[in-house]
Design a protein around this nucleic acid. Structure first.
Lengths: 225, 225
DNA sequence: GCAAAAGTGTTCTCTGTACACCCATGT
DNA sequence: ACATGGGTGTACAGAGAACACTTTTGC
């Protein structure tokens, strides 16, 4: 789409250097009943020392989706998770840059956070985030809003859970994302009537109480309903 | 967000020229009971002679929103209309480029299409578009999907109508966007119960039939409900 | 008086929500 | 036996969808 007709309208001088294109990723997980986001401590200026979302310059041999996917793998080791483009921001860092934001959902049990010499990435509970570099707090808010909307009419939660899970686990994931308790009976009724999960016949014993049925998502890829 | 931490992970050689950043705009209107989109005939390669969405390279002194807004004004003369970022595409033109797509809603009665030496932009009914340059057909489909979703839980239609309008006009706009007839009584009940429009007390006589009440949107800016 | 669009209510179905008790297990 | 989380049904309210006739005007 580059030169879509307007080279004429708006002369493109060579001195008009193209802005830098960066890709940043809001990586969510639900761990210990809490919604958390992955942050890294900035080792470079600007905003050295502050926490920020992981991201990087778009390399010349990768697409936007690939760049987001690579960044996600670099930080958490996971692939094949829910990853969706969120929004494209401008001048987040007061430089000449365009930042394409993505959001991803990972099962914290599967994630192996990168080791780094100075700092490693770390999970931060969404409630009570520190002040972040650039406008990253705004980006996270926006991602959360989108996640909550999707939760209601898609199966995105598959990406936050292991292949087999109990309905209580699924409910805790929803509650952590929505920041409010849900009614057990209504929740189960809804999930089952949507037809996105199915009982596996297996059960899991996990304490001094009745074992739970294990369920699985019918599709471990995005489905909208 | 440019250098968000990854300058280390992925070395940024100077030979890694940044991709071009373009902005393209899907401009919708409802005219003559039909949903239409604004297309221009490409005067430049690639795809010279094909119809495509209006767009252009991001200038160094404008933000993404500004670029979209400028492009919209250049083609239609209108400002202060509904304009929302849609999605950022990659390699739409098989060049090294990133295209940030927007969609806009304009009242065709207000739009003054640009005059150009070779071709002028023109409105095309959504149903039965020609094959467009790049993947522009896909971009328009995506924009339409988003527009339909918004129509149901926002007041975006304000941007497709004059300040005073009848409920029948509003209904025709909805029907043109949704491609299906709506029930008059249910439509009116819903619009009024949402509280986004209000009667003005004025009426409009428009033919050999009973005059219609004129309504106005309470807010002529985006409101979600 | 006739053609044309404006305007107006009721019924039914479905979905979301509120709400409380018994069950199976480990200790 | 008791503590713990697993599992289940019903009643009510609100929203969306179907559906037909009267009103006001210009000609």
């Amino acid at each position: 789409m580059a030169a879509n007709e307007s080279a004429r309208t708006r002369s493109t001088r060579l001195t008009d250097v193209s802005p830098t294109v960066a890709v940043i990723v809001v990586i969510f997980t639900v761990d210990d009943g809490e919604l958390k986001v992955l942050l890294i401590s900035r080792s470079a200026e600007p905003s050295r020392g502050l926490w920020s979302l992981p991201g990087g310059i778009l390399a010349h041999d990768e697409s936007l989706d690939e760049a987001a996917s690579h960044k996600l793998r670099d930080e958490t080791g996971v692939t094949d998770v829910y990853l969706e483009q969120l929004y494209t921001f401008h001048n987040l860092d007061d430089q000449r840059s365009v930042a394409v934001a993505y959001f991803a959902l990972v099962d914290s049990r599967q994630a192996q956070l990168a080791h780094r010499r100075t700092w490693r990435p770390a999970w931060f509970p969404i409630a009570g985030l520190p002040r972040l570099a650039f406008d990253n707090n705004g980006v996270i808010d926006y991602a959360l809003q989108r996640l909550r909307a999707k939760l209601d009419y898609s199966n995105v939660a598959y990406s936050l859970l292991p292949p087999y899970f109990t309905l209580s686990q699924l409910q805790r994931v929803h509650e952590a994302i929505l920041f409010r308790p849900l009614d057990k009976r209504n929740f189960r009724k809804r999930m089952l009537s949507l037809g996105i999960i199915e009982p596996t016949g297996r059960t899991a014993t996990e304490g001094a109480h009745r074992p739970a049925q294990l369920y699985a998502f019918r599709e471990r890829r995005p489905v909208i309903f």
